[in-house]
């Protein structure tokens, strides 16, 4: 084994987790997303600072990026390291958000290996893009996304509560997430 710096070892672990996640290991998927979130947040903070934008909306970029990572994870070539793919998606979403805010968009994004996680999250009572965009979903989809995300119910519990089959809840959840990503894109 070649000697690796801390950042490289961390990224190699994430690559392994994503491979497991794509193989159906949901625990590995959760670990990966939880590990990526603070790093994405720090990268977004830096990007906003560099563009001279206020950092109040950083969590919106983090959420949109996570959504894109999730919905586009089949575009990652599992034989390649994970992070160049993640960095490209993060940069794209950062540029999209800055463009919506009318900021310059020729931003370099740092190599994530050097980035330390940023723990701070904004005040949870503050309205975010995603809450506003949830309003653009159909009632059933919104109900299902909320039930699983905010109210922390399982798919089976949600299915029981809404008197639907688990399969139908899965389909509605997936469609709801795709619809959310599309609504981000349509933001002015």
């Amino acid at each position: 084994m070649p000697v690796r710096s801390g950042g490289e070892a961390r990224e190699a672990t994430w690559t392994v987790w994503m491979r497991s996640a794509i193989g159906g290991d949901q625990a590995a998927y959760r670990r990966l997303l939880e590990a990526l979130t603070p790093v994405l947040r720090q990268a977004a903070l830096r990007g906003f600072a560099r563009a001279g934008a206020g950092t109040g909306d950083v969590e919106d970029v983090v959420q949109e990026t996570l959504l894109a990572i999730h919905l586009k994870r089949h575009t990652w070539d599992t034989s390649q390291p994970l992070m160049p793919w993640v960095v490209t998606i993060a940069r794209n979403k950062l540029i999209d958000q800055l463009r919506r805010r009318g900021r310059r968009t020729d931003l370099p994004v740092d190599d994530f290996a050097e980035i330390l996680p940023a723990p701070a999250e904004r005040d949870p009572t503050e309205a975010s893009d995603i809450d506003r965009l949830l309003g653009g979903l159909g009632e059933r989809q919104r109900d299902i996304v909320r039930s699983i995300a905010v109210e922390d119910r399982s798919i089976s519990a949600t299915a029981a509560r809404l008197e639907m089959s688990e399969g139908a809840v899965r389909v509605a959840l997936h469609r709801g997430l795709k619809a959310l990503a599309a609504l981000y894109r349509r933001e002015p």
């Binding site: 998927y29 959760r30 997303l33 996570l66 999250e121 949870p124 996304v145 995300a149 798919i155 997936h174």
Partner: peptide, 15 residues
């Protein structure tokens, strides 16, 4: 919605 909440939904959809 907190980012933590969103992660829950993504993992649930990850299967």
């Amino acid at each position: 919605m907190r980012t933590e909440d969103l992660l829950g939904a993504l993992v649930a959809d990850g299967g």
